[in-house]
Amino acid sequence: MLRYFLIRLGQSLALMFGVLLLVFMMLRVTGDPAALMLPREASAAEIEAFRERMGFNRPIIVQFVDFLSKAVVGDFGESLHFRTPAMTLVTQRLPATVELAATGLLFAVLIGVPIGMMGGLKPGSAADSLARLLALMGQSIPNFWLAMLMILFFGVQLRWFPTFGRGAWNSVVMPAFVLGLPVMGQIVRLTRSTVLEIRSEDFVRTAYSKGLEPPVIYLKHILRNASIPIISVIGVQFGYMLGGSIYIETIFAWPGMGQLLQLAIGWRDFPLVQAIAIFTSTVVIALNLLTDLVYAIIDPRIRYGF
């Protein structure tokens, strides 16, 4: 178990280094930040002075080492646009994104798992058709389009929910629904296919033959075994959702990290983009690691494999 953990941890750290390198390089080959950040009338001397002050004129490798040593302690410098430490801006936006992601995920699991189970237990039934339809829709409807339609229908026509922003309790409903929908689709499909597979396994037949009530079999035998892949999907998806969705947060004017990222990219705010990209990657990598560990705890085959 410890060996497994250490190997996964090592892999994660290597991955993290790769992310840092990639983020650093990508931002420096797309344009000259000095010329962009300064007003258009700025003279060549002013641009040069700015470059000097920001350290953009140093050799790239020196910039990288400097970047790396600060990144380790969470210091990504000051946002060029907002003139406050980039990490502070990220943490300010975190609660909104966590709220959105958690609500979206909760919604996806609470709807996705039961529907998927119904479909898996009775393939070919009306419930199954509905499950497959929902899964298909969830995964194929473009979320920005759905978001706009929901705003127009539930926000403008019916006035059930606010059209934008994060305010009253119900303001999270629409963005969370749109954010959770593709995940729900994925969970429905996964639950359905896993349940379908498990229901014909020997231990399930045994459970039936020893006279257990179907609900008990569904929950204790089938669902528990089906939960392993579902948990891994939830872990991975939650990581992505915590990165904030640019589209959804922008359309709903949700003050989370996705919106901040969109702003940062538009303003070519190097430090801020870096902080968000690396923060998000760290969360995704950490959640993947955590999922793998949970997985190993639930399923002995994995931990004894090493």
């Binding site: 606010p162 059209t163 359309i251």
Partner: peptide, 18 residues
């Protein structure tokens, strides 16, 4: 002051009197 980058959302919010 509210911040709504997406202009179609601004239209919706204005229509809904928000």
């Amino acid at each position: 002051f509210r911040f709504i980058t997406e202009s179609s959302t601004r239209v919706a919010a204005l229509t809904a009197d928000e």
